[in-house]
Design a protein around this nucleic acid. Sequence first.
DNA 1: AAGTGTGAAAAGTTTCACAGCG
DNA 2: CGCTGTGAAACTTTTCACACTT
Lengths: 207, 207
Amino acid sequence: MEKSPLPKKVIYRFSTYYRCLQRLAENKHETVSSSTLAKAAGVNSSQLRKDIAYLGQWGTRGLGYPVVTLISALREALRQEKLRPVVLVGAGNLGSALLRYQGFQKEGFEVVAAFDSDIHAAASRGIKIPLYRDEELTSFITANNVKLAILCVPAEFAQGVTNQLVQAGIQGILNFSPAILEIPTNVVVNQVDLASELENLSYFIRG
Amino acid sequence: MEKSPLPKKVIYRFSTYYRCLQRLAENKHETVSSSTLAKAAGVNSSQLRKDIAYLGQWGTRGLGYPVVTLISALREALRQEKLRPVVLVGAGNLGSALLRYQGFQKEGFEVVAAFDSDIHAAASRGIKIPLYRDEELTSFITANNVKLAILCVPAEFAQGVTNQLVQAGIQGILNFSPAILEIPTNVVVNQVDLASELENLSYFIRG
DNA sequence: AAGTGTGAAAAGTTTCACAGCG
DNA sequence: CGCTGTGAAACTTTTCACACTT
């Protein structure tokens, strides 16, 4: 009955562990020790044990963790049991690339529709997913009970679109625009700012 | 003479402040208070003051910070004065999209070359930047003294390519593949895992 | 003997609160 | 008086170290 709020960072690491475990399962490993899995995931072994302990006591002392069981526990923790529908707004360069990218589908997310103010320009980019004009955003999201959105519009439109999304019932936004979004407290935003990432790297290299 | 190591998180926030200040400059604001800038950047005002204080004492008590001066100080801190060359490896769906995406160029980075094992497939995606086969990686990087790389190859090739990059003298890698890279301590990796970001969002929304 | 689970220590980060400057 | 700069407090996250189980 853990009511504890599971830190965000732990959830990120769960995603990593999940992927590492899948590789181990493919290679027919039945168990894995904290130190081995930690190495694979790039974290320290006590941290891994602490993290896993949030899920309950799955390990066997002297032996390690059962790979398949842990995978299930993590899938449940990540609430990945069913395919989650996602909409994408802004099918420009970056947005249309994300649509073609298969990475989301593999991990339990289905991009069910894309929206753009200019569907002709967007259509020319060879998109296979249903493509709508921005005006249809609200009705689609409400009708299909979508909770997650990927936002790839230019920074100056980001807040306006966000307001629409929130209004329509979106609760999680993956924001690729470099804008800081104002949102109600029940909505979560994860920021992916590619320029900041490069800037950051750039800072830490010498020369 | 600050020798202090400037936490990674602070550098990320610097990027955000930098963008917010640019907007303020465009709108002809000459000064800005910590609380205003903090609101725009989505952080708390003492945190902003602490962060800015790493750069020196730029503020005027009772008034705030001079926008233009702060921008210069941040640009210098982020070592953004000159265009930094970057190479991109793996011009598949995601990679070729990033090449078309203008966001990097705007922020002081120039993608000078792209590499792929299959240049014909990659060329068909309409790339304008010089495109080379993977074999030429090492010589290009060495010859052009490139220090930053964007890695978009499938996970199973990520470590191999990374070894080549490091060998060639790359010191910072922006890794879009969901692989954990083993690297020497003088190299920095920033991970951008889109599936994990969605998983994470998904966890925090109810329902 | 190998390896988990966990309290306690350490390190890192954010927020508070206020002295003091312009 | 408004707002910065900063020590100290509060909180969070990571690492250590070891009792304890299989």
